[in-house]
Computed example of a mutant assay.
Amino acid sequence: MEIDCIYCSKDKNLKELMSEICKLEGSILYLFRDQKHLGRCVLAYKYHATELFEIPRYNYEIYMKELKFVANKLKELFNCDKVNYAVYGDLINHVHFHIVPKYKDGIQWGEPFSDKINPKFLKDEEFEKIKNLILKKVTN
């Protein structure tokens, strides 16, 4: 049975939404192309699963440890006031967490982050710079 999943197929739709930063033991870290929330990343489970409860316990523990680690590194790197997390999967049926740095004086403080406001796409050089900063932070 073929799985229709952008995280598994790594098709052009995935590349339009985000860019891979690195692979971890149980997950893959991506930088979201829309950077209205500077540092917004996605941590996708390395293997196909549509629900958290489908992940074997050992892999789940690794994935959650990596989520905690990445969120902490993003907080350190971007000096944000809060990190928001989102898990949906209605449209992209693969376990993944959005990890979103937020600031008290920034957009959407005190409310869920949303893609309903205008996106902010950085110039390629700036996007790559942020991507490399995150890579260095999570791999050192």
Rank of each mutant, 00 (worst) to 15 (best):
A49I: 02
L43R: 05
G39P: 05
V100M: 05
D11C: 02
P101W: 01
T139H: 07
L43D: 09
E111N: 12
T139G: 00
F97D: 08
I28G: 10
M18N: 03
E61A: 09
F32S: 11
H96Y: 14
K46R: 14
L135Y: 15
K46H: 12
F121P: 10
P112W: 03
Y63E: 06
N79R: 14
H48P: 13
V42P: 11
K23E: 12
H96F: 04
D34Y: 11
Y30C: 14
E125R: 01
M64F: 12
Y58S: 15
N59D: 15
K104G: 05
A71T: 07
W109Q: 06
Q108V: 07
K46P: 12
R57P: 06
F97G: 06
E76A: 09
R57K: 13
E16N: 15
I28T: 15
Y58L: 13
G110K: 06
K68E: 14
V100Y: 00
H98G: 00
D105S: 07
I55H: 08
E20W: 04
N84Y: 12
E20K: 14
I6F: 07
E128K: 11
N72W: 01
I134A: 02
N118Y: 09
I99C: 07
Y7K: 03
I117M: 10
L52I: 15
I62G: 03
L14F: 10
I134C: 00
Y88S: 14
A71I: 04
E125S: 11
H98W: 04
Q108M: 13
E76I: 07
E20S: 05
K36H: 06
L133C: 03
E126N: 08
K82V: 07
F53L: 13
F69T: 09
N132L: 03
L31I: 02
P101D: 08
K120M: 10
Y47L: 06
K75V: 00
N132K: 02
D4K: 11
K75H: 08
I28A: 02
E20L: 10
M18K: 06
